[in-house]
Amino acid sequence: ELREAFRLYDKEGNGYISTDVMREILAELDETLSSEDLDAMIDEIDADGSGTVDFEEFMGVMT
């Protein structure tokens, strides 16, 4: 189920989504998050600083 959700956002099928897209997902899930909260969450999610979120990083957030 998580893989299907990931595929919805990984429109190009390249195995990752951008941190911008991940930020939008988080904002949709919790509309009360401030910009600073979102920045901090993205920094934590994208631990390797690649600017992308792969499936493993995505799973870590969603579980």
Rank of each mutant, 00 (worst) to 15 (best):
V61G: 07
D39Y: 04
D20G: 10
E56R: 09
A47F: 11
V61P: 02
E31R: 15
R23F: 02
M41S: 01
S50D: 07
G15N: 05
R23T: 01
D20P: 04
F58G: 01
F6C: 09
D37H: 06
G13S: 06
E1A: 14
T32F: 09
R3T: 10
M59C: 10
E1F: 11
E28C: 14
G60H: 15
E24I: 12
F6Y: 03
F58H: 00
S35T: 12
E24D: 11
S18C: 06
S34Q: 06
E1I: 11
D10R: 00
M41Q: 05
L26S: 00
G13N: 11
I45P: 01
M22G: 00
G15P: 02
E36H: 09
A40P: 01
N14K: 12
A40N: 10
Y16P: 00
V53W: 04
V21R: 09
A27Q: 12
V53R: 01
L29W: 13
D37A: 11
L8N: 14
E4H: 05
L29S: 05
A5V: 15
V21D: 12
D48C: 07
R3D: 12
I25L: 11
G13R: 04
G49M: 07
G60S: 15
D43L: 14
E1L: 11
S18A: 07
N14Q: 08
D37F: 06
D20R: 08
D30Y: 15
E24A: 14
R3S: 08
G51M: 04
E44C: 13
M41A: 07
L33N: 01
R23W: 04
G51V: 01
D39E: 07
L8G: 13
D20H: 12
E1C: 15
D46L: 04
E4F: 02
K11W: 09
D10I: 04
I17M: 02
R3F: 13
E56M: 09
M41G: 01
E31W: 12
D39R: 06
V21A: 14
I45H: 03
M41N: 01
F55Q: 03
A47T: 12
E4Y: 01
L2T: 04
T52V: 09
E36D: 11
V53Q: 01
